[in-house]
């Protein structure tokens, strides 16, 4: 069973809260800086842990679940998160994120990333406008073509919109390791700011060609399904963390898996999704502390392989 909060972090948190209450400002400068990576096309830094919304934020208009997701998003921002990724395919997720960001008053912190998801390649501008209305944003930070659906037409229009200043960054996405050959061709041919693909400790095919190509071409990479859709947790079960975790200041398996993903030199950001506040706390732990070096990454792979 995963702990809600590691004891060490709980004690530190309690002590910090007491100190902050007694002497406000004492801890203002001691907050560790989140780990960031720069977007190659502009040099803009981004926190390496973002948030996905697939399934988790599709709660419709349910007031109980909206309140609960608000707590998750609030914690995400409090812990230094910025990138929130959604798609029109995810039911009400875009509308829910828009509503909750408004409630929290966090529009300035948000790096809004969504997707165009329609076969109609002439519908790009309308699709972007629909998403803008749902998110309540005037301009998306990142607009991606979802799973390469109608990518040629959509990407051409997105490039125009970026040139017009209507979008900040553009990209394309895949998931589940699908269409990597197509993605590689697009990465070689098109001027992309971002690609999104599946990368985690069990699905590492992207390491062979796509991640080196992203570095070569100066394309930022977002990793979806960093927990392999939760299957990595099933694999570790209730096993304790390995000794290596201590050296990397890792307190949970979630942090272990995420630090592996974001420590790849081509990686810009991972977007785990969750419905639990406690899990969000664990995920955001990966935004701080040390990242593994190449040798430690290899050891991490061996550890998971041996499970």
């Amino acid at each position: 069973m995963r702990l809600l909060m590691p004891r060490r972090r709980f004690l530190i948190g309690m002590a910090s809260t007491g100190l902050a209450a007694r002497w406000p400002g004492v801890l203002a400068d001691s907050e560790p800086a989140p780990i960031t990576r720069t977007i190659p096309s502009t040099g803009e830094p981004l926190p390496v842990i973002g948030m996905g919304t697939w399934r988790t934020f599709n709660v419709g208009t349910d007031p109980v679940l909206l309140d609960q997701r608000e707590q998750i998003l609030d914690l995400f921002f409090q812990r230094g998160g910025r990138v929130v990724d959604a798609s029109p395919m995810y039911g009400s997720a875009e509308a829910v994120v828009g509503e909750l960001v408004k409630r929290l008053g966090r529009r300035e912190a948000l790096f809004a990333a969504t997707k165009v998801w329609t076969r109609d390649e002439s519908d790009t501008r309308e699709a972007v406008a629909r998403s803008e209305a749902l998110w309540g944003v005037a301009r998306f930070d990142l607009m991606q073509v979802h799973n390469l659906l109608g990518w040629e037409g959509h990407l051409a229009t997105l490039q125009e919109m970026k040139a017009e200043g209507r979008l900040r960054y553009i990209g394309v996405t895949t998931s589940h390791g699908r269409r990597h050959d197509d993605l590689e061709r697009i990465m070689r041919r098109e001027p992309l700011d971002f690609v999104q693909l599946t990368y985690n400790m069990a699905d590492r095919e992207a390491e062979r060609r796509l991640l080196p190509l992203a570095r070569e071409r100066g394309i930022a990479v977002i990793a979806n399904r960093p927990f392999q859709g939760g299957r990595l947790f099933e694999r570790v079960g209730s096993r304790p963390l390995p000794a290596l975790a201590g050296a990397l200041e890792i307190d949970s398996w979630a942090e272990f898996f995420l630090k592996f993903v974001v420590s790849h030199p081509a990686m810009t950001c991972a977007i785990p999704a969750t419905t639990q506040v406690a899990h969000m706390r664990e995920n955001m732990g990966a935004l701080y502390g040390r990242l593994p070096d190449e040798m430690q990454r290899r050891r991490m792979i061996d550890i998971v392989r041996e499970l």
């Binding site: 697939w54 589940h176 419905t275």
Partner: peptide, 22 residues
């Protein structure tokens, strides 16, 4: 890597079961 049936589902069981109460 391949799709499972669950990968086509866009919501969680929690949200679905709440529909009955709502």
């Amino acid at each position: 890597m391949d799709y499972a049936l669950g990968d086509f589902l866009m919501f969680t069981p929690e949200v679905y079961l709440r529909l009955f109460e709502r």
